[in-house]
C-alpha cells in the first residue's frame, strides 16, 4: 500500500497472506472456515498449488504468534470469465483450504455484501503487505488505508483510452493524499462499514503502477460475483479430514461390533 498506515492486530481479522515458495505474493480474505476470497491472477498458470501456503492471524509477516495459522490449499476455483473480456477481467478466485480455520478474536470472516448495496458515500478501507513505494520497497507490517471510491466515469477519464474498465470493476484511491494499492496487495479486500458491520465490496485487482500520475486502484466488484461465490461455497463439500486417532476403547468397541456383524452375516 502506498501511503498506508500501520494497523493493529484484531482490526482486520479476515486478512489473509498468500505465500508462494515462502514469500508473500498476494492478499486474501476469510469468507468462512474453509474458503478464502482472492484474485485469480495470483494463481498464474504454471504455479503449483502445493507451493502455495495461506496464513491467517498475522500482521507482521516475519512474526508468527499463537493466533497465526498456516493452512494448505485443497483447491482453487478461478472465475470462468478470468481474462476473457479484459486482460484482468473476472479477476476472482475462491481458495478452498485442506483444513478449517479456527476462529478467534484475531481470526474472523468478512461479510459478503448484499447484491443491491448502494456504495454512495461509503467509507472504505483496504489492507495489505504490498509495495510501499513506486521503487518497489515492501514492508513486513500489515498496512491500512482509507480509500474513497471513485466514480467509474471519472476513473475511466483518468485512465484515458489506454485501459478500459468493465462494469464488474470499481475504482478507489486517495489521490489527494497519495494513497493507493500496489503490487502485492492484489487479492486483498476493500471493505466498507455499514451499520457497524464490515462488508467486502472489492478485491484488489489491477492498476497502473502505484504513484504519480496516480491511476486509481481497480478492484473486482464483489457484488458482481456474489452468486458465483455463494454457489461454490454452498455446493463444494468440505475436504475429508484426517480423523484424529481413535481412542483405544472406541477402537476396541468398534472392532467388537464389526466382529459381531461379520459373524451375523455368516449365519
Amino acid at each position: 500500500l502506498l501511503g498506508g498506515e500501520l494497523t493493529r492486530d484484531r482490526k482486520w481479522p479476515w486478512q489473509v497472506s498468500v505465500h508462494y515458495s515462502g514469500f508473500h505474493v498476494c492478499g486474501g480474505s476469510i469468507l468462512n472456515a474453509y474458503w478464502v476470497l482472492t484474485a485469480a491472477h495470483c494463481f498464474a498458470r504454471g504455479k503449483k498449488l502445493q507451493t502455495f501456503d495461506m496464513y491467517v492471524g498475522i500482521t507482521n509477516l516475519e512474526v508468527a504468534n499463537r493466533h497465526t495459522q498456516w493452512l494448505e490449499i485443497n483447491q482453487v476455483i478461478i472465475h470462468p470469465t478470468f481474462e476473457m473480456f479484459h486482460p484482468v477481467g473476472g479477476d476472482v478466485a475462491l481458495v478452498q483450504l485442506k483444513s478449517p480455520i479456527v476462529f478467534s478474536d484475531f481470526v474472523l470472516p468478512i461479510c459478503l455484501p448484499p447484491s443491491n448495496l448502494n456504495l454512495h458515500n461509503m467509507s472504505c478501507w483496504t489492507t495489505g503487505w504490498g509495495m510501499i513505494s513506486p521503487q518497489g520497497e515492501t514492508g513486513k507490517e500489515l498496512l491500512e488505508a482509507q480509500l474513497p471510491l471513485i466514480p467509474k466515469f471519472q476513473c475511466q477519464l483518468l485512465y484515458g483510452l489506454t485501459s478500459y474498465l468493465l462494469p464488474e470493476m470499481l475504482c478507489a484511491a486517495d489521490i489527494k493524499n497519495m494513497k493507493n494499492v500496489c503490487e502485492g496487495d492484489s487479492g486483498g479486500p476493500l471493505v466498507c462499514k455499514l451499520n457497524e458491520t464490515w462488508l467486502q465490496i472489492g478485491i484488489v485487482s489491477w492498476g497502473r503502477g502505484c504513484a504519480q500520475p496516480l491511476y486509481p486502484g481497480v478492484f473486482a466488484n464483489v457484488s458482481y460475483f456474489l452468486s458465483w461465490i455463494r454457489y461454490y461455497m454452498e455446493t463444494v463439500p468440505n475436504p475429508p479430514q484426517i480423523l484424529p486417532s481413535l481412542s483405544s476403547s472406541l477402537r476396541n468397541n468398534l472392532s467388537t461390533l464389526l466382529t459381531i456383524m461379520g459373524s451375523l452375516l455368516v449365519l
Binding site: W14, V102, Q241
Partner: peptide, 27 residues
C-alpha cells in the same frame, strides 16, 4: 508457525461466528 494438527479439529470453528465484526473497533 505450528502446523495445524488433526487434534485441533476438536476445537474446529463454529460456523456461526459473526462476520465483519472485529473485536477491536478502530477508533
Amino acid at each position: 508457525v505450528s502446523r495445524r494438527h488433526p487434534k485441533d479439529q476438536a476445537n474446529s470453528p463454529s460456523s456461526d461466528v459473526a462476520c465483519g465484526q472485529p473485536v477491536l473497533q478502530g477508533k
